[in-house]
Each structure stands twice: as C-alpha cells, then as structure tokens.
Nucleic acid binder design. Sequence first.
RNA 1: GGCACCUUGGCGGAGUGGUUACGCAGAGGUCUGCAAAACCUUUUACGCCGGUUCGAGUCCGGUAGGUGCCUCCA
Length: 469
Amino acid sequence: MKLYSTLTKQIDEIKPLNPPIVTVYTCGPTVYDYAHIGHWFTYVRMDTLIRALKADGLQPKWVMNITDVGHLVSDADEGEDKLEKGAKREGKSAWEVAEFYTQDFIEGMKALNMLQPDKMVKATDHIPDQIELIKQLDDKGYAYIIDAGVYYDTSKFSRYGDFAGLDLDEQQAGARVSLNPQKRNASDFALWKFSPTDHKRDMEWDSPWGKGFPGWHIDCSAMSMKYLGPTLDIHTGGIDHVPVHHTNEIAQSEAATGKPFAQHWLHANHVMVEGQKISKSLSNGVSLQATSDKGYSAEVVRLHVLESHYRSQSRFSWDSLEAAQNRLNNLQAFADLRFQATASDGKASGADFDKYTELITNALLDDLNTPKALALLSGLVDEHSVISRDELGSFKRFITSVDELLGTKLGKSEDISADQRQLITKREAARAIQDWQVSDNVRDQLGIQGVGLRDTPGGAIWFRQAPQK
RNA sequence: GGCACCUUGGCGGAGUGGUUACGCAGAGGUCUGCAAAACCUUUUACGCCGGUUCGAGUCCGGUAGGUGCCUCCA
C-alpha cells in the first residue's frame, strides 16, 4: 500500500522489514483529561491505517503508548507535569488520574469501533527501559546534567532539524520562550527530570542521576524499540508531534542504536471546531459524551471522520455531524436490504459487489483515501435499491467487508420484528383493495416505531428512520 | 521574524492537465391513491491577476485572505 511519509515528503510504497508482519507504533494520549474530538479524529485515522494494512494482506503488530508521566504543561524546563496538575485539580493522586482517563480512553476506542492495539503500553510501567536508554545516550556523550535534570545535547545529532525542516537558528530568533540558561542549545530537551526539592511528587523513581521522572519523549523511544525493534515500519501520531516530539524521538533513538528509527512516518492533521483551533482556553474540545448527549452515536462521529482525508486540516461542526448522521441512515437502509431480498425471478440490483469491495480497498491502499472510499460506497447505494435472493450472498459479504475496511457497523443491525413484518403485510393487503385508510394508518403506526416505507413495484421496502410523531 | 500549508457550488469535502467526485441541505418538476423512495432540473463551483499549453480547479509567477508550527498539544 502507498502512504505519504513525513520523512520523505512523498507518497511511498510500504515495505515492511519482515513481511507479512508490519510494525506500527502510535503515540497515544496523555491521560490527564477527557479526550476530545480532535484526539478521536486522529485515532480513528490510525485505526483506519491498521484496517488498510490488513486489507493489503499484512499482519500489523500495533503498539500504542499511554503517556501517564512526564508530559509537562509548559516547556521542558518550567511547568508542571500534566498528570500531577490533573491530580491537584481533582484532589486525587496522579496514579488515580492516569487510571481514570486511561479507562475512559479505552472505552472511547471501543465506542468508535476501533481495533484494539496488540499492546497498549504505559510509560510508568517502563521506567527501567527508559533509564537504560538514557544510560546508552549518556555513554555515547549525548547527555549532560544540569540542575533541572539530564538533557539531550541536540547539537551532537547533526541531522536534528532535518525531519521537521527546522532551521534552529531562525526559529530561536522568534522564540517566545525564555530559555533555561543552563541548557546548551534551545532545542535541547530533558531525558530525565529531577524531582523538585520543595514538594514531593506522586510519581518519582530513583535513577543513576538522582530521584526524578522521565522526560516526555524518552518513553516512546524506549517502548517502541522494546516491543517492535530498533527500526519500526510505521510510526504515527498527530501532526503537532512533528517538530518536537518525533524530532526528539528520532534524535534519541538513532543516537542510541545507530539505525534508522522508523521507515515511515504518518501524521494526522488537526481538526478545527466551528472554524477554530481546539484549545483549552476556548473550551471547544467536544467530547464523545457531548456528541452522545446531542443524540449522535459514536458511529456517526466515525463516519464523519472518514469523510475527510487524514492529511487535510478538517473541520468539525454540528451541521456536518448532522449531515453524517443522514448519510449513515442512508447507508444503513442500504445494508438493511439484506433482510428483504426480492424473489429470484424479480428485479435484481445487478451490482458486482466483489468489484466494489476491491475498489474501496484500493482507495484505502492509496494513502488512506477514505473520502473516495465513501464516495464509491454512496455511488453504489445510489444506483441499487433492490437486492434479489440470488445476490444475497455476495451482498452480505460486501457489507461485512465494508464494516471491516471502514469500521462501520452496517452489518450489525437487526431485522424488524415479526409484528412489524406483519403490519407491512397487512398494509400490502389493504393497498391491494385500495383501502387507503387502513394503509395509511399502518404506515403511521410503523413510522412511530421508527420504520419507514417506500413502495416499489416489487412491494414495500422498509428502512429505519427517526421515529415519526 | 522564520518554516510549511490552504483558498472548490448553501454547508462539508474529493480531485495534480482533457466527460458528473461524493455527502448533506434548499427550490421546481416527473412519478404516486396520498406519501416516501427514485428520477430530472436547478447560476458556466473552483480567491484574484497574469503566464505556460491545443486545453488548467489541476502546472509556473505574482497578489489577497486564511491556517498550522516555531510554547504543551491529536
């Protein structure tokens, strides 16, 4: 399959080191607060990547981290640890905060029908691995110690700015942050931070350099290489990680191993909410709870994510979510045709469903073109409103494939009840004798139950809709 | 100040040189017992100005506006 790589800045063919295994590492959430719509956009896209890799015949080995320590509110010199801050806010320990939001995140993943990573790894479970990696860097002369902790000397890693296309001198001229005067270079970052002297942290560990906690970047390097080897096939994350987090991961990992850290880098672009960047100060980070409260299922959210391309800066709005809801209703009505195939001698759709499975797969294999995949699907729905018994097998197979490829749940819907089916039969009989009163009553009755009808030459076809009044 | 990106019809959103993306919404019509569904139609949609080309939304230059990053961030 082909994917755009941040590393090469072009669309490359994915070539795993050990096919059919393909190793994928995703920078997961920092669990100090509820995930918002922007996070979910990104993770649904990573999930789509895994699905596409599978469709390509590969066997993804997917590791996602949970950052539960060391991620600082401000820059690496000042600022609190996000977990410790969250703990203070909620009157809990940092450990409790991490556990709570980790569970909440996992529930969100399930709601969005995301595949579970083969491993979800926590930074706090891998402190020795991180210390070991820092030791290696120290031995090779990449580290230095100042009052704040152990730091990485980015000037020792000559290609430091290459990945993100950073010109460090130019950037420093416009930097808005006052630098720690002890740091050798503005871009240097913490490998290990020393615990503060004025209060005790919830999370701290002993190390060869002193009591403290790991820097934010070292956990991803240590854990990804531990589980997936020194060179990953695909490393993914949000686009914001390019200039700092991933740049630092590369610097640490490659300095330690002398090998390329990841063959391929995939970054999901950000989402704007009602035209604005998602930020704490605007409080516009819509949660899954918020979408649910407004009556939109996670399935709708997921479909809305797929409507835009992962590399474009997409937009979230309630209007577009409503549009996604309507689109999903139509897709579901199409999938529900599997409960009402027409007689074999009747009309058939004549669609080549296997061909469409292939077309949709190909769209995903072409740099995860989910909008195109949905356009293909909608085109098919638009052209075919009847399924014959002869086609039922290939149709069901198609719906199953779509669900696997896109993470939809079209094939999970249930048939209408026997009572409802009987009502439809009753109405057909009434219509046959032109008893419009009974016919309309039955239609209203079904409408109240959320079942709509459309009359075709071959009889009535039902579809689910919002319950009518 | 530096780097990168974007600008498509009412709202979203694809599309890198040559017939309708697609979705949602609105209007009119056909059909229908009435509806629904379907179908047809709906202002030449591609920020603006130049250029290249037989031909550009799609390449080049300029210009206006917007966004992201350079601070933690999916």
